[in-house]
């Protein structure tokens, strides 16, 4: 018996989402009195996993493959899970984590539960709390299968250190059927993505036009934050739809969400509701966002935001 976690990485280094999944997996393994087995691909910097209590790491060499390959990664994960008789498997809620989770569940005859926001409320049968209705509600979901794959919501458990030493093993990299082939990947390397960000700075129609987005970008730069936007902004083409957060866009579960000139339509608020602390800056005191926010400034973004950026910059130095 074991708990198996999928460690996502970037250039050989585990990502924060991967470490959070390891932390969470450690707690599940302790509750079951079993070992924690991690699966990673091409990890060079795997000593970090020792800090989070991984007992065994299958570090799989992809033989030169540099991109996430859903077919081979999911098969490798399923093979390890079968080998170590995993009862629980955990992936993150990143784009890749949520992609691989349901596939691994079918391959291993497991139930799959996404958007999990905490440790199980019950083991045997396993029951977890998860968000639903795009963060407008939660539900308690119980598995009817012996094995379960969980997708953990970002920042919902956090990092918990439990030092140990992981035994590092190599694992087989399954063959490809070549039915799906990655041709190219476009990724901004100088920007933090919405999924990985601790802080997200978001702009709405109140910014009046795309030419004013330096206000958002400058503030995000100082905070090391990701930039996001509301639905109308992406529909008007001011910003790429990859920045659109909300019910039909991306969900946000950051520690701090700063909304500038965003009125706060119910669909937008649902999408960002999982963020821990919300700040709104808006000239309209009646904007619905003030009801959802923790901190607010009623004021002109064009005056308030540059001052905030300058003061934060001075503080960081």
């Amino acid at each position: 018996m074991a708990v198996v976690v999928y460690i996502e990485s970037e250039n050989g280094t585990p990502k924060k989402a991967g470490l959070e999944v390891a932390s969470y997996g450690r707690a599940l393994a302790d509750a079951h009195g079993v070992s924690l087995v991690a699966v990673g691909f091409n990890l060079t910097d795997h000593e970090r996993l020792n800090v989070f209590g991984v007992d065994k790491l299958y570090n799989i060499d992809t033989q030169g493959g540099v991109h996430f390959d859903v077919e081979r990664y999911s098969e490798a994960l399923a093979q390890v899970a079968t080998k170590v008789s995993a009862s629980l498997m955990v992936v993150s809620s990143s784009a890749d984590g949520r992609y691989i989770g349901p596939i691994v569940a079918i391959k291993t005859d497991a139930a799959y539960m996404s958007n999990v926001v905490g440790l199980p409320s019950q083991y045997g049968p396993l029951q977890v709390k998860r968000t639903c209705f795009t963060n407008k509600a939660f539900n308690e979901t119980q598995s009817t299968k012996e094995r379960v794959v969980l997708s953990l919501s970002s920042n919902s458990y956090g990092l918990h250190e439990k030092p140990g030493t992981a035994e590092v093993l190599s694992g087989d990299y399954p063959v490809s059927s070549n039915s799906l082939k990655v041709e190219s990947v476009e990724k901004a390397t100088d920007k933090v993505s919405i999924a990985d960000a601790d802080i997200v700075v978001s702009g709405g129609r109140g910014l009046k036009g795309p030419e004013n987005w330096h206000l958002i970008e400058d503030l995000a730069d100082v905070l090391g934050a990701a930039t996001a936007c509301s639905k109308p902004v992406s529909d008007m083409g001011w910003r790429s739809h990859s920045e659109h957060v909300g019910q039909t866009g991306k969900p946000v579960a950051s520690n701090l969400y700063i909304a500038i000139g965003v009125s706060g339509a119910i669909q937008h608020l649902a999408g960002i509701n999982a963020s821990k602390v919300k700040v709104v800056i808006n000239s309209d005191p009646e904007a619905p966002f003030f009801k959802a926010a923790d901190y607010g400034i009623v004021g002109d973004a064009f005056e308030v935001v540059p001052v905030l950026t300058e003061k934060l910059k001075a503080r960081m130095q």
């Binding site: 569940a105 497991a110 139930a111 799959y112 539960m113 029951q127 709390k129 639903c132 963060n135 407008k136 509600a137 939660f138 539900n139 308690e140 979901t141 119980q142 598995s143 009817t144 299968k145 509701n273 700040v279 709104v280 003030f290 009801k291 959802a292 926010a293 923790d294 901190y295 607010g296 400034i297 009623v298 004021g299 002109d300 005056e303 308030v304 001052v307 905030l308 003061k311 934060l312 503080r315």
Partner: peptide
Amino acid sequence: APASKVQAFEKPAEKGPVKLVDAEDIDGLI
């Protein structure tokens, strides 16, 4: 057969009121 079943729903806890900071008091917000 399904692989899971929902046992119960829950709505998020009511949130406290927003803490407003004066537009001139950026240091206060920080």
